[in-house]
């Protein structure tokens, strides 16, 4: 409990730093002392605060998406970006952008979520054909599926001259976040809370179908609930800030190493850790080439993929 409070404190400090830095040369601190400064307060309310909130919401919910997915697929290496879920959402977003460009962003997001859900069904179906449920083979299948879906998406984006837009989606970036352009991410918070409430169910489902049935839980319904949560989170994040790969892999795995897999205990940690990780990555991306920015997906991708390899190697040596 005390440790979690400490984690929250670190996250709060990171959030403060995130509020204070930026390209605009304003003294946000002066607001704290109650000095009237119109420009500073405008920048704070329209740009900085939404950005920091978006970072916290996206970071925590993507961490949760990874956690839920790892539980129900029973594999440590899955998360939306290693299973084709993000790519499916992107395809859905592209399709709805082409066919119904006038739809509100909420409707587009729901279409993307529907595609993401179908992508996950496809992934689970594919897994049934994998002869050995090798722990490393599962994400490999996912990454191949992601490649295929990504190729289809690129093809249509190319045909309709939407490649730059597609590139924008695949590069998660918070620099474009302004008031009025991030609010969908609050749905991610809702999903995080739902995952927290259903945490015990997911832990049970993570023990397998027979184990779940023995305890009187409906396995399929629990799985479906988890998949809906993951696809919603993946698509709200994609639509609002673009994809941030490997985030859902790093945070839940670190938490699992320390705390184990009882999801009820892991949920608050993953949420806090995910937020802190993204805040830190974003701060790093903002200061490393100040006043220019490195997109968050690059920062998190570099750290995350290195961690992914580390995790794979660790698994190998453990298995041997």
């Amino acid at each position: 409990m005390i440790a979690l409070g400490l984690g929250l404190l670190v996250t709060a400090v990171l959030a403060m730093i995130s509020l204070l830095i930026g390209a605009a040369d304003t003294n946000i601190l002066s607001l704290l002392w109650g000095l009237p400064d119109d420009q500073a307060s405008q920048i704070l309310m329209i740009s900085r605060l939404p950005r920091t909130l978006a970072l916290i919401l996206a970071g925590s919910s993507l961490g949760i998406a990874g956690l839920v997915m790892q539980m129900i697929v029973r594999n440590r290496f899955v998360e939306p970006s290693t299973t084709g879920t993000t790519e499916s959402a992107m395809l859905g977003f592209l399709v709805v952008t082409l066919l119904a460009p006038d739809w509100p962003i909420m409707g587009k997001m729901l279409v993307a979520a529907g595609f993401a859900l179908m992508g996950m069904f496809l992934f689970l179906r594919l897994l049934k054909f994998v002869p050995l449920r090798d722990v490393v083979l599962v994400p490999l299948v996912g990454i191949m599926l992601a490649g295929v879906i990504g190729a289809i998406t690129s093809f249509f984006a190319y045909r309709f001259n939407l490649l730059p837009m597609l590139l924008g989606w695949s590069m998660g970036d918070f620099s474009g976040v302004l008031r009025g352009r991030y609010e969908l991410l609050w749905i991610g918070l809702g999903c995080t809370i739902a995952a927290g409430i259903a945490a015990d169910r997911f832990t049970v489902a993570g023990m397998g179908r027979e184990f779940t049935t023995n305890l009187g839980l409906n396995y399929r319904r629990t799985m479906l609930f988890g998949l809906v949560i993951v696809s919603l989170i993946a698509s709200v994040c994609l639509v609002s800030v673009g994809s941030i790969p490997f985030l859902g892999l790093v945070v839940p795995n670190v938490v699992s190493l320390i705390l184990g897999d009882n999801m009820r205990r892991a949920v608050p940690w993953v949420a806090v850790g995910g937020a802190a990780f993204v805040l830190a990555g974003d701060i790093l991306g903002r200061v490393v080439r100040y006043p220019y920015e490195v997109p968050i997906s690059v920062v998190v991708g570099v750290i995350g993929s290195a961690f992914f390899i580390l995790l794979l190697l660790r698994r190998r040596t453990n298995a041997a």
Binding site: M71, R76, V135, T203, G206, M207, G208, D261
Partner: peptide, 8 residues
């Protein structure tokens, strides 16, 4: 009971 979950 193939376990992937780390439970106490």
């Amino acid at each position: 009971n193939h376990m992937t979950a780390r439970l106490s």
